[in-house]
């Protein structure tokens, strides 16, 4: 893992000769965090891998124009979130039949996913999370799993702290109801 700060990495990236090396360090620094952020949204490893690649390719293309008034990791998270949401939208439009619900497919895939080995309670929790609307799901994942601060979440999702708190509160309530009903 790289010991460079974001600022140092960006300075390194601006040097044409060290550009590739700097980007490699950026990938190494953020790949794990971004992978899990995306994986919690799209569930499947193969889809996560595609989205993570797209995220870094977009980052590579946009890094020249990156303004340092926001943090690098906030910017990367934003790209990853947008890419994941775009992916989900594409998947939903792919299945034109109204009865086919992409979230239900994901829930079913949890049963057979070779890269999921959670116990029963974790499976139930993941299914409850999949029942949430997309944005609420992202807020819940960022707060609950990534333990991210509301301020940082607000910068990534471009929304207010109050709205995020309300969203998280609703998400927890819905998950609680799911556990009661299930």
């Amino acid at each position: 893992m790289s010991d460079y700060s974001d600022k140092e990495l960006l300075t390194l990236f601006k040097d044409n000769e060290k550009r590739n090396y700097a980007f490699n360090l950026i990938v190494r620094k953020y790949q794990v965090k971004l992978y899990w952020h995306i994986r919690k949204i799209v569930i499947k490893h193969e889809d996560t891998d595609d989205i993570l690649q797209n995220t870094f390719v977009k980052a590579w293309k946009g890094l020249d124009g990156f303004r340092e008034d926001s943090k690098l990791y906030t910017w990367l998270y934003r790209i990853a979130t947008n890419e994941s949401l775009t992916f989900l939208k594409q998947q939903k439009t792919k299945y034109l039949m109204p009865l086919v619900d992409y979230e239900n497919q994901l829930k079913e895939s949890l049963e057979s996913d070779e890269y999921f080995n959670g116990d029963e309670i974790q499976r139930r929790l993941q299914k409850a999370i999949l029942d949430l609307p997309e944005k609420q799901r992202i807020v819940f994942n960022m707060k609950y799993f990534d333990e991210m601060k509301y301020d940082d979440m607000a910068k990534i999702l471009k929304t207010s702290v109050g709205a995020l708190k309300a969203s998280y509160h609703h998400a927890v309530k819905k998950i609680e109801n799911y556990f009661k009903e299930d």
Binding site: V27, H45, Q53, V57, G118
Partner: peptide
């Protein structure tokens, strides 16, 4: 509860660089 294939994070930077 989720996990990744062995060596995934070790190979990923090289793959992304190639791409």
């Amino acid at each position: 509860p989720f996990y990744v294939p062995d060596g995934y994070f070790e190979d990923f930077p090289t793959r992304i660089q190639d791409k």
